[in-house]
Write a protein that binds this DNA or RNA. Structure first.
Lengths: 226, 226
DNA sequence: TAAAGCCATATTTTCGAAATTCTGGACAAA
DNA sequence: TTTGTCCAGAATTTCGAAAATATGGCTTTA
């Protein structure tokens, strides 16, 4: 693993988890201090992040964290529904035993951390929740057989993760929403090989999240979107 | 425009048009000579190309041109049908006067170069054809309103372009296929605001191209896929 | 003969200095 | 007052050398 790779991962995490707010200029001199590396690995990492649409750059004017907006959030959510919906359908149709095993394992791991959390949820616990959530959804579509769909799903996943971390800083999940039940229903539909129902549930799941995000972002953290 | 940008575009064109064959190692010293720049802009360009999946890299082992294969080609084609199909539907539903104007203009420009080509087609003429073809398809989906779908469509477009340029070097377009008619039908369906028909035609159009590519790649240029 | 260790060479990766380019404010002219 | 120009400071971009790492052939050993 090169220095570039390390710095890439650290920068990525710092952006996704909102430690660099949207639109913040990423000054090389400062990052050099912060991460303790030279210009070269920094610029390489930033160029790669540009490909994932986490940063933007203008010639001779350096890099900035990409902006967030409610409009853009809905675009990401709807695109995700399209891409992951199709990937899920294919997985349900083509997935083998190992796919099913991965699903069950992923759901169980997610349930455990959800229960453990209960009411109190500090930052590292939320990160763990986010990670297992991501892994469960990755497991759902893992047998789709398309590298491109998985690629796009990954990009959209980190994109929407930016909004989730932003929202969860100011609000806690609505009590009237039973996330565990939504995931359980998704798991059941997948195991029963009901592709249409699974895709519908996934669509519903993501739209709900979108509405939640819109609500929170609209009121509380509007400042963070500028 | 920085040196990085320039070198990025040149490298990109050289890969897409097959002047660097698949799997070819991209040695920095050689590229340095070839493009007359230092290491920094080269590595930045290569890192960005990695994000577009045109090159791959392994730590301490440099960069290579990404491989091509028939399997991967079909994945790209099918993903393209999904993404552009949805984008086209939305464009047909939401597109305004300027969208229609762009469509008609794009189709006309494409027809002109197709007619001018006739039988003889040298390399620069083929590049022009490819450009207008790309622009017509871009115009079709340009009013979809989704930055993400346009982004994915662009990536898949350059990916499939790699296969087209490879195939067109060894084979000429089948005579029994009337590309102009296919495009005309697509244009008509779009202008008549028949989203379903347009999407079906687009799907057909891309699948036909896929079969053509499979045929050519399977026999003639199989060596180029390794 | 086969396997393991080692060295010379080729290549990538990183650094810090130098060159280039932008920004914002002060000053002058209309 | 407004507009335009110029300059100093700040930031990005580029370069070439130095450090770190892989590769392939050679020798040694079992």
């Amino acid at each position: 693993m090169t220095l570039s790779d390390t710095v890439y991962e650290r920068l990525r995490a710092d952006i996704v988890q909102g430690r660099f707010p949207p639109l913040q200029p990423l000054r090389l001199e400062q990052l050099k201090q912060q991460y303790g590396v030279g210009f070269s690995p920094l610029r390489e990492a930033l160029n790669r992040l540009q490909g994932e649409r986490l940063v933007v750059s203008a010639a001779q004017r350096g890099f900035r964290v990409r902006a967030l907006s409610v409009t853009e959030m809905w675009d990401a959510v709807e695109s995700r529904i399209l891409v992951e919906g199709e990937a899920l359908r294919r997985s349900v149709e083509q997935g083998g035993d190992d796919w099913e095993a991965g699903l069950v394992a992923g759901f169980h791991a997610l349930s455990l951390v959800v229960k453990r959390l209960g009411a109190g949820a500090d930052a590292p616990a939320l990160e763990e929740l986010e990670r297992r959530h991501r892994e469960f959804h990755a497991a759902l579509i893992s047998a789709c057989g398309s590298a491109w769909l998985l690629d796009f799903a990954g990009t959209l996943g980190t994109e929407t993760e930016r909004y989730r971390t932003l929202a969860l800083r100011s609000a806690t999940l609505r009590r009237d929403r039973d996330l565990e039940a939504e995931h359980k229903a998704l798991l059941d539909a997948a195991l029963e090989r009901d592709a249409d129902r699974a895709a519908d549930l996934l669509e519903e799941h993501y739209r709900e999240t979108g509405q939640f995000l819109e609500q929170v972002l609209g009121q509380g953290e509007a400042a963070a979107l500028r």
